[in-house]
Design a protein around this nucleic acid. Structure first.
Lengths: 234, 234
DNA sequence: TCAAAAGTGTTACAAATACACCCATGT
DNA sequence: ACATGGGTGTATTTGTAACACTTTTGA
């Protein structure tokens, strides 16, 4: 690198870049969020999303995955950038630009010990406490994103166990859209998409009769995508 | 701020934060992009999006507006965050996280002298040259965003003059969706949305008969939005 | 036997698509 | 008078929304 080039960068302002994870789960018919009580200053004792500063030699997306892994023990989780939070005064400590990333995890699979160790808790979305900084706004933005995205991408399945029942799936979409759906229409539509595989097994945890379990068939879904198909579910 | 707090930040990595603007226009039935030939190192002489480093005391969104104003003379332009580009090695000079922002401008309104002064040019989207760094990817991502967004938000009007004809509007949507639309169906649908005001004037630049000019009625649109309306145009 | 959730079809309505001709005007 | 783009209507298909009863089974 020439001196000229070096000068070009050297005179600019450098700042912290962080990433905050908005981690969603789904349990007992409700959307949940994983937040934690901060054990260090600043904001000791306050509720916060899970985040981290991005290291100089680390991709932003990697930082988010690292954080998520540290706290849940999970890898290969659905995670996507939400947006950046770049107001100059958002963090009174020092200038920090944060990249919000939302993750959808199967709530049954996370490492409970690890979560407890970090002082993290699953909260009902409706009963969220105040979070530090602009973290409540991040949650709100993430929810809206999920609501919209669920209409054209099968992201719902990321929140369910690998095997799930149609009523569970419906509950999930009702939680996301925050409105009730007609079970006949929902079943008709979701099955017409042809991306569910019906299993022989039944799940009897929520009824005596039991409901058939299904699996999401990602392979078929990918084929549909390539043939110009547009997933849609409302 | 306590010493503890200071320490908390001080030991972290600081990096440059930049913003790059993907500036779209629409002219002669085609989508255009405003790019410029760099006049300073690094990448002297190469084509690039317009961008800037974010200053320590400046909102990220403000930096983007500043850049856009510097180069086009325009304020109050539709601009929205696209996503961040945060790969560790994306800029070989030094670690730079860039926030991509896309803007839709009325191509008739920009300051031509200013644009020329900065070495900027409007390029047909299909004939874009290679751009520096990951800028081509940014353009691709922005186009996809616009394609999707145009289906549920009336962003198209940001690219047209205040007064426009239905055929112009259709051409625009054909350029965005990259497919031809049926003029009868298009007209029917767009008029059914009730957000266009028909004027008495005609535009005769593209036909002898002339086509009626319309204006977008943002007031009515805002009312529709609040009553739970969902703009849709395909 | 009864309570509780699972599963199933049909009809009415709305929206999307496909499709072809006349109109107005400047040259 | 003719070439060019502007403007209009209808029929068909497709998808969405509304709606109620029977089935299964554990307690």
């Amino acid at each position: 690198m020439t001196n000229f080039t070096k000068d070009f960068y050297i005179q600019k302002d450098r700042m912290y870049v962080a990433t905050d994870c908005i981690i969603f789960g789904f349990d007992s018919g409700k959307l949940k969020l994983l937040i934690f009580k901060r054990r260090i200053k600043p904001y000791l004792g306050e509720w916060s999303l899970i985040g981290s500063f991005v290291k100089l030699n680390e991709d932003v997306s990697h930082a988010a995955k690292r954080v998520l892994h540290e706290i849940t023990g999970l890898d290969n989780v659905f995670m996507e950038e939400l947006k950046s939070y770049g107001a100059a005064e958002r963090d009174p400590g020092f200038r920090v630009v944060s990249i919000g990333q939302y993750a959808l995890i199967r709530i049954s699979e996370y490492d409970k010990e690890l979560v407890a160790k970090h002082g993290a808790h699953w909260y009902d979305l409706e009963e969220l406490p105040d979070l530090v900084l602009d973290h409540n706004q991040m949650v709100k933005d993430a929810l809206e994103r999920i609501k919209r995205k669920a209409k054209y991408k099968p992201i719902g399945f990321e929140l369910l166990p690998e095997k799930f029942t149609i009523p569970q799936l419906q509950q999930l979409y009702e939680a996301i859209y925050q409105k009730e759906l007609d079970s006949r229409n929902f079943r008709k539509k979701v099955l017409s998409l042809k991306v569910l595989v019906k299993l022989e097994e039944k799940d009897k945890t929520s009824s005596k009769r039991g409901a058939y379990l299904y699996k999401f068939d990602d392979h078929t879904y990918q084929q549909l995508l390539q043939s110009g198909y547009n997933f849609e579910l409302s």
